[in-house]
Design a protein around this nucleic acid. Structure first.
Lengths: 222, 222
DNA sequence: CTATATTTCAAACAATTGATTGACATCTGA
DNA sequence: TCAGATGTCAATCAATTGTTTGAAATATAG
């Protein structure tokens, strides 16, 4: 009815595209309630009515912006597959490295910010983010951990996964607060490489595949 | 000028108190922008003008609500002090237990929710929450870890603290998403005790004070 | 070209927002 | 009792919100 009609596959009569991109930036920065459709349309150089014309309303635009975001952010299922025969500990190391990198240096920071916002309090578009973005990664991690801990019961395996993800997410979700506590300079000293190495070491040590933190031997067993 | 004038120490002419409590609940549930002063005053059974009269505006009420929150939530510096001579690993265990409990079964869930919201994106009252609520805990953890890892450089020590806090915070900040992924039942199986025990074990193992996760020996070395 | 569909636009709409006003009530202390 | 301070109230303000309108412009197809 009100949807774009002409070409079903070519997905951007320009106004629509600019609208989505402006919306993505605005929503990422200030959240759904913090942004007015007037702001967005002004940024996009488009008339206000276009929002209802193309998306049926503010909420429709928001959802579309989130959907567009996880395209830009690099699909999570695009994780580099370790060659078969790779020891599970090595898979885990690769997983953590990839994950930390995507969190801290995403292809599209704006898109990542928007998705994180939607995760922080799941709302209108949480289903999109979760099923297409988070779910595949979660199951990938679970498989790796299951391989490393074949005898662990489901609950503890889940908790172990949460321990890994929790460490990784912390730096994204709580950086502002951390900076308030310890100072920006100190926190900034934790660059991507250091964080990656630390989380990997911490996790592998917890799983018995590396020397404990603080141990003299600088590298891991296997 | 417009502030309450009469009794500077007795802090609640009833209307003021009810306003703060209603505000706390509303802000915790729906956030600053999600709540109108009309909602709050209606809940509190107070006239709208009272907000400006007592707090100078919506923002003033919000800040006061947050301040009130960290009183209710149990001050974080009220951690049970371990007796002197307690081995540092035992201190860490106590810290984690206390922290997890406060996160999952806080004295005032509403207050905790409000503070978490303010932490999630630091705004008008972040300074209050951080300095009076978070900061003391952060330094307490750092002392414990420093005792356990006397030779570790500052950056890595900080990262280790983040690994602990990250694990603990995950269950609070990301429970909704986790439930979307794995299902509510599965996640609910991770009750406070199991989470406490897991994070403690995981962390102590990473620090070399317990057997690794998945190891047969069910308890820790020292 | 003509007719039909699609897109854009300025203007206005109804609803909600936070804030303010000024009259009225209540309390306090002499 | 009186006067001033303190608290409460309904009514209203100005601004902003998302949404809608109906006409004008533009593109598309016969």
């Amino acid at each position: 009815m009100s949807r774009r009609a002409a070409v079903p596959d070519l997905d951007a009569p320009d106004a629509r595209k600019r609208l989505i991109e402006a919306a993505q930036a605005a929503f990422a920065e200030r959240g759904f309630d913090g942004v007015s459709v007037r702001d967005i349309t002004a940024d996009a150089g488009v008339n206000i009515a276009a929002v209802n014309y193309y998306f049926g309303g503010k909420e429709g635009l928001y959802i579309e912006a989130v959907k567009h975001a996880h395209d830009c952010a690099g699909r999570m299922d695009g994780f580099p597959k370790p060659p078969p025969g790779t020891p599970p500990a090595e898979k885990l190391r690769g997983f953590i490295r990839e994950m930390v990198h995507r969190m801290h240096a995403p292809a599209s920071p704006t898109s990542m910010k928007l998705m994180m916002r939607e995760m922080a309090d799941p709302g209108k578009a949480s289903h999109v983010v979760v099923t297409e973005f988070i779910q595949p990664v979660a199951f990938m991690l679970r498989e790796i951990l299951r391989e490393m801990l074949p005898k662990l019961d489901e609950s503890r395996l889940l908790a172990t996964g949460f321990s890994v993800i929790g460490q990784i997410l912390f730096y994204r979700q709580n950086r502002p607060v951390s900076e308030l506590i310890f100072g920006k300079k100190v926190v900034d000293a934790l660059d991507v490489e250091l964080v990656t190495e630390h989380i990997t070491r911490f996790t592998l040590a917890a799983l018995g595949h590396a020397e404990p933190i603080g141990s003299q031997k600088e590298r891991f067993k296997q």
